[in-house]
Design a protein around this nucleic acid. Structure first.
Length: 156
DNA sequence: GCCAACGTTGGC
DNA sequence: GCCAACGTTGGC
């Protein structure tokens, strides 16, 4: 099993929004970056788990976890002219963008803020805490996963 | 294939 | 809203 981190602006799509979806499941759509696309298309598997990260907000950080319930398949929004994610250069014969389906797993008792993650030496090599990082889907190591999970009860 | 211009991301 | 970092675009 592998671990991932999914970024979203909560004003656009929050963890609570995912919870409100039917069966708490939604497609992780709208990713329009090739490196992140490759993760979605080639590497993220059913049964993998991920952190849900809120970006571009008053306190950016990890708010909970999700489980991957369906591996990569073409992002339907790329063929929807009314979608902000519409890509006229993508064809069904050769889809350019992919999604995975994620299911809400857990909301942390409190957000684990980015500034708290930056304080931990074990997490110093995480791409998330490096500056200039702009990837919206990131791999997380098992060590990082456990380390971050263990921070949560401390916030009670 | 170089690289300047431009657009986007995201912390602060 | 600012701005640094980074990806993409397109002329040459």
């Amino acid at each position: 099993m592998a671990y991932w981190l999914f970024k979203s602006e909560p004003g656009n799509f929050s963890l609570d929004d995912l919870y409100a979806c039917p069966q708490h499941i939604d497609a992780w759509n709208g990713v329009r970056n090739y490196q992140a696309r490759n993760f979605l298309r080639d590497q993220i598997a059913r049964g993998d788990r991920g952190f849900f990260y809120h970006s571009k907000c008053t306190v950016p950080g990890i708010v909970g976890t999700v489980e991957i319930v369906r591996a990569g398949y073409p992002d339907p929004t790329q063929w929807d002219p009314d979608s902000p994610y519409y890509d006229p250069k993508s064809t069904p014969a050769c889809p350019r963008w992919f999604v995975v389906d994620v299911r809400f797993e857990k909301k942390f008792t409190a957000i684990i803020p980015l500034h708290a993650l930056k304080r931990l030496p074990e997490l110093a090599t995480m791409p998330l805490v490096q500056r200039g990082n702009r990837l919206s889907v990131l791999p997380v190591s098992a060590v990082e996963w456990r380390c971050i999970q263990s921070m949560e009860p401390l916030l009670l």
